[in-house]
Design a protein around this nucleic acid. Sequence first.
DNA 1: GTCTATACACAGATAGAC
DNA 2: GTCTATCTGTGTATAGAC
Lengths: 211, 211
Amino acid sequence: MHAREEAILATVNRLLAEKGFDAMTVDQVAYDVGIAKASLYKHFASKEDLAAAAMIRVLDLALAQLEVLKARPNAAPIDQLKAVARWTMEVQLAGAMPSLPAQNSALRAALVGNSIYVDRLMQVSEQLGAWITAGQAAGALKAALPPEVVLYTLFARACDPVLGLLKAGGNYSDAQIIEMLLSTCFDGLAAPALPAKRPPAGARARVTVVG
Amino acid sequence: MHAREEAILATVNRLLAEKGFDAMTVDQVAYDVGIAKASLYKHFASKEDLAAAAMIRVLDLALAQLEVLKARPNAAPIDQLKAVARWTMEVQLAGAMPSLPAQNSALRAALVGNSIYVDRLMQVSEQLGAWITAGQAAGALKAALPPEVVLYTLFARACDPVLGLLKAGGNYSDAQIIEMLLSTCFDGLAAPALPAKRPPAGARARVTVVG
DNA sequence: GTCTATACACAGATAGAC
DNA sequence: GTCTATCTGTGTATAGAC
């Protein structure tokens, strides 16, 4: 049954985001979904398969989002990348973004051996890579950074623990958190170099990001 | 025996960095150290205690590094922060930086209940916080970012998975990786706004970061 | 396909001799 | 303090009835 599997994957997604692969138990997945553990294994052959299917589902959602963005006629490449980063942060704040598999996790081996997962990941990477090189050619992204560095950075920001820390602190709205992290990701922590010795009076107000 | 405990913590540190808390087993710690598991439990009461001691050790190393940096007479606050970030990246590339505990890990509860850990973390945070606010006052760091956002970002970059991804790719030296990630952290992915319509010819060459 | 019940393996922790 | 051997809980996975 397809709807059942969708419900399972949504639960897996949430638990992966909350606790990570190793700390997530199949028992809890079954309990949260409301079915018996044995029934889970009729749908997915192993815990690794379960997690891989959830990761693939996220990548499919991302690919759908990329199609939406590609339909924007006059968007600059850097704005497409910012829109993607914004979307991944929204997903993470919604508690639906599984963390990247740790360097040496049992999950990693299963994922690299999963051709569907690898294929989806390549599709996402290729679209982002196209925007990255276009953005560099347009002078909007630092041309000195290898595109793969930009790509990895965007993937990593999708799972940035800073979002969770700020949300747990409770001092900012989701929208404020996203604006601040987009700012640090694309513009950095440092203040921009002053173009003249005496900046205009409005220069400082313009960099205010939170409402 | 103090030297023995130091050897244990170094091993725990490495395994925490490689696999994370959940995937690290006490059996492997004992095997790597070369002692029996029961002997480990004579030194540390639990797996959580073991990990907490390793995290405290890293914080102590960081505090020592902060003392070194504070001895520099004419360093600007932002340069102190960059030096700290550089040090944490070097530690991570050396395989000795444990990952931040996942949002809902069993480790997190143990850490927040460990007064020594909390105390050390506060000490580090206070020194970094002083440099952050000073850097903002000096106009070197974006004043629009709340200091805690800068602080969390620096902590997160100490465990940034981008370092591991780039190192695994094998295309860059450790020094190149660090320079690039320092650049993305402090200056962002975007190219700086052009101060004039026609930048000088040397402007592009100046942003080349890797050798 | 869903369930209850169970097999199997392994990890955290301890007992007790030396 | 270190060891071997063991207890105990828990987590993945499966058997077999319905």
